[in-house]
Design a protein around this nucleic acid. Sequence first.
DNA 1: TCAATAAAGGACATTTTTGTCCGAATAATA
DNA 2: TATTATTCGGACAAAAATGTCCTTTATTGA
Lengths: 145, 145
Amino acid sequence: MMFSKACEYGIRAAVYIALQSLDNRRVSVNEIAEEIDSPVAFTAKILQQLTRNNIVHSVKGPTGGFEIDREAMDTVKLSKIVKAIDGDKIYVGCGLGLKECNADRPCPLHDKFVDIRTDLRTMLQSTSLYELATGLEVGLTYLKR
Amino acid sequence: MMFSKACEYGIRAAVYIALQSLDNRRVSVNEIAEEIDSPVAFTAKILQQLTRNNIVHSVKGPTGGFEIDREAMDTVKLSKIVKAIDGDKIYVGCGLGLKECNADRPCPLHDKFVDIRTDLRTMLQSTSLYELATGLEVGLTYLKR
DNA sequence: TCAATAAAGGACATTTTTGTCCGAATAATA
DNA sequence: TATTATTCGGACAAAAATGTCCTTTATTGA
Ligand code: FES
Ligand code: FES
């Protein structure tokens, strides 16, 4: 509802890859899709986008798969994933669908909407994959129901 | 991005109807679509939903059109429109797309996401059509670019 | 070198959302 | 009563998002 399905899968996949990379396991699309409960082929497409955007790293061939450097887990924030998949409409779009959000000619919801949108952006820009992966690691959070 | 197109049009239409009802003008779909810059026939469909949900009132025939009681302008909050058109997924859905959002088995983003979602809900539940229409009336806000 | 394994990428299929069209129902008014 | 202006409702169409399939490419290890 806030993010596209593709983006939801992308974030879940990235978090799972980060989790496994924490103990140096490279993971395949099949395993990822299984663990995050997502359609395999569609997930593969999304992983291609993440790879092209240097969010995850991929290796072909046997023993290949996806992984994330320990460093990237800190530097890659959710905002980067969202931007790669959904673009920046979530950051700059008007809540009521005007062609652009513009404080000089605001829609009736502008002021209230901007507050929330800013909170969302701040949250996404400050949340790293590492942070999300560690919650998973200690069993506090889950990637599927 | 946050709301569907249908919902965006629905809110803009409702605000415009409220604005005109402030000085007792009933408005037609054609006028509404013109003034909020939306596709006429699609807007008509959305207005039907708003009518069925008692958000606006419609009158058929010549001199007919849409209107909103002065009282309803206060009691109808944006949350009612959003719920009528987009349902309640925006309020109860998991940000990462898990089948349901559940604090007992949260996704990695749950805590941070819930904060923002709650702010959004609170904002929608506390914002009335009257409030939005008055900003328009005095020329502070706009419904099209 | 060859078979097996995995990602990459393109074409296609399905579903959902967005949008259109047209006839029926309703009501005002001449 | 006939005409006209309006919403209502259903069927349809187009576009976008979601999802599938299959072939190619890279890499490993026997
Ligand atoms: S103009 Fe609508 S949110 Fe800024
Ligand atoms: S479980 Fe994901 S937002 Fe609550």
